Computed example of a mutant assay.
Amino acid sequence: MMINFQDIYHNGRDQDHTQSWMSEPFKGFSLDSRYVQHGQIFIALTSYSQPEKTRQFAQAALDKGALAVISETDLGIAPALVCPQVRRLMGQWQKQYLQATTPVQAVRVLAVTGTNGKTTISRLVAELLTLQNKKCAVMGTTGNGILPHLEVSSHTTLDALHLQNLMHDFALQGAEFASIEASSHGL
């Protein structure tokens, strides 16, 4: 099924901010201009260390075929949408996109946070659920995957887009639960 950004963005919102690209079908979101694919919407998060490069990354994404750019501030490029709360919304947008294109029963998430013991507790929870014949995914320091098959992870807690992609993938593989380490930085 095809979906457009207008369906996601205007979900309960005022319709005055509609732009023509919002009604076109799109192919998901990307946070990395190097890997953006034709038809995706590029989310340009302002770099805290190099804010001047944000516009360059956004333009590079458009040059590669991004449908549009969503940024926290006005970058002076088009087509674009300024959405100051994009960091808070992008995970929900990705989840809505994935459910619209390939509906699944979402996994139940058990998140562990704190100073010490996240890895141990999240893994023990996953092991206990697995012993109860419940298919459980793990996300964190020891890797990501459905037990016992884990792949190396680049971060303890992934960014919102990658987290939603993995959760959706785990559900497609039949996982009922996901036990994740939720680092304070990731939250």
Results as ranks from 00 to 15, higher is better:
residue 115 T to P: 13
residue 54 T to S: 02
residue 180 I to V: 14
residue 53 K to H: 13
residue 150 L to K: 13
residue 108 R to L: 11
residue 43 I to R: 04
residue 140 G to P: 07
residue 152 V to F: 09
residue 101 T to P: 06
residue 6 Q to A: 14
residue 40 Q to M: 12
residue 85 Q to S: 13
residue 19 Q to N: 03
residue 119 T to N: 15
residue 164 Q to W: 01
residue 109 V to N: 03
residue 164 Q to N: 10
residue 161 L to N: 05
residue 55 R to K: 15
residue 82 V to E: 00
residue 125 V to S: 03
residue 42 F to H: 05
residue 9 Y to R: 02
residue 40 Q to D: 11
residue 134 K to T: 04
residue 175 A to E: 02
residue 22 M to W: 02
residue 44 A to W: 01
residue 21 W to S: 05
residue 28 G to M: 05
residue 178 A to D: 05
residue 3 I to L: 06
residue 163 L to F: 03
residue 30 S to W: 10
residue 117 G to D: 13
residue 186 G to E: 00
residue 39 G to M: 01
residue 174 G to L: 06
residue 108 R to W: 03
residue 150 L to R: 13
residue 123 R to M: 12
residue 76 G to F: 10
residue 120 T to Y: 11
residue 142 T to R: 11
residue 52 E to C: 11
residue 34 R to Y: 12
residue 186 G to W: 08
residue 185 H to V: 02
residue 154 S to A: 15
residue 166 L to T: 09
residue 156 T to Q: 14
residue 28 G to K: 06
residue 129 L to S: 01
residue 171 A to E: 09
residue 38 H to W: 03
residue 149 H to Q: 15
residue 83 C to L: 01
residue 31 L to F: 06
residue 73 T to F: 02
residue 26 F to W: 07
residue 137 A to S: 13
residue 170 F to M: 15
residue 186 G to I: 00
residue 121 I to S: 01
residue 122 S to N: 12
residue 72 E to K: 04
residue 83 C to F: 00
residue 74 D to A: 10
residue 132 Q to P: 12
residue 10 H to R: 11
residue 137 A to F: 11
residue 73 T to S: 04
residue 12 G to H: 12
residue 27 K to Y: 13
residue 4 N to T: 11
residue 169 D to Q: 15
residue 31 L to M: 02
residue 94 Q to I: 04
residue 61 A to L: 02
residue 3 I to K: 02
residue 103 P to K: 12
residue 130 T to P: 08
residue 151 E to V: 11
residue 74 D to M: 06
residue 174 G to K: 05
residue 94 Q to L: 05
residue 15 Q to D: 14
residue 30 S to P: 08
residue 122 S to C: 06
residue 71 S to F: 09
residue 42 F to I: 01
residue 56 Q to R: 13
residue 186 G to V: 00
residue 80 A to C: 07
residue 50 Q to A: 12
residue 118 K to I: 07
residue 120 T to G: 12
residue 95 K to S: 09
residue 48 Y to H: 04
residue 111 A to V: 10
residue 166 L to I: 10
residue 108 R to T: 08
residue 75 L to A: 08
residue 156 T to K: 14
residue 173 Q to P: 11
residue 91 G to K: 03
residue 170 F to Q: 04
residue 51 P to K: 07
residue 130 T to V: 06
residue 74 D to I: 07
residue 59 Q to W: 06
residue 10 H to K: 09
residue 118 K to Y: 06
residue 65 G to P: 07
residue 173 Q to G: 11
residue 170 F to L: 11
residue 139 M to I: 08
residue 46 T to M: 10
residue 104 V to H: 07
residue 113 T to Y: 15
residue 60 A to C: 09
residue 9 Y to I: 09
residue 10 H to E: 15
residue 100 A to S: 07
residue 28 G to S: 04
residue 114 G to L: 15
residue 128 L to V: 09
residue 165 N to G: 03
residue 124 L to A: 08
residue 184 S to V: 09
residue 44 A to V: 01
residue 186 G to C: 04
residue 155 H to S: 02
residue 99 Q to L: 08
residue 9 Y to T: 05
residue 25 P to C: 14
residue 152 V to N: 14
residue 17 H to K: 07
residue 66 A to K: 08
residue 135 K to I: 02
residue 160 A to N: 04
residue 2 M to W: 04
residue 102 T to A: 13
residue 107 V to A: 14
residue 160 A to Q: 05
residue 162 H to P: 01
residue 17 H to V: 03
